[in-house]
Design a protein around this nucleic acid. Structure first.
Length: 108
DNA sequence: GTAATGACCTTGG
DNA sequence: ACCAAGGCCATTA
């Protein structure tokens, strides 16, 4: 299987600084696919329970909404992790999302 | 090999 | 400005 794509996503997500969040589109664009934002989410779907901690909770949609919070083991786990990062989440939405937004291209 | 799904994004009316 | 539809990529059935 081409888990390479998955590793690619995981690698980017793991490089996300604490207290920061990124979007699927940004990751997809960083990978080069650009339009594979959906596939990025799919990759995170398999990141559940991986050996290396994949901060999927730091990955949200373009709207800053916790679209995948429902896919976590405990649904409230995402909010808890974000809360641990000092990220305020209300109604499944990150406060000051633009301010906490982090782009993988920033590494370049 | 074809069809359907999915943690999305962009563009059109 | 708001609502709606289409598209692209990868995986699974």
């Amino acid at each position: 299987m081409d888990q390479d794509f998955f590793e690619r996503v995981y690698d980017v997500v793991r490089q996300v600084p604490p207290g920061r969040v990124t979007t699927y589109g940004a990751i997809a664009r960083f990978l080069g696919s650009g339009r594979s934002a959906r596939t990025v989410g799919y990759a995170l779907n398999a990141c559940h329970g991986l050996q290396p901690s994949v901060p999927a909770h730091r990955v949200v949609n373009r709207n800053g909404q916790l679209s995948g919070k429902h896919h976590f083991d405990p649904v409230a786990s995402m909010e808890a992790l974000l809360a641990a990062e000092k990220i305020s989440v209300v109604e499944d939405r990150i406060l000051d999302f633009e301010r906490l937004f982090w782009d993988p291209e920033c590494l370049l």
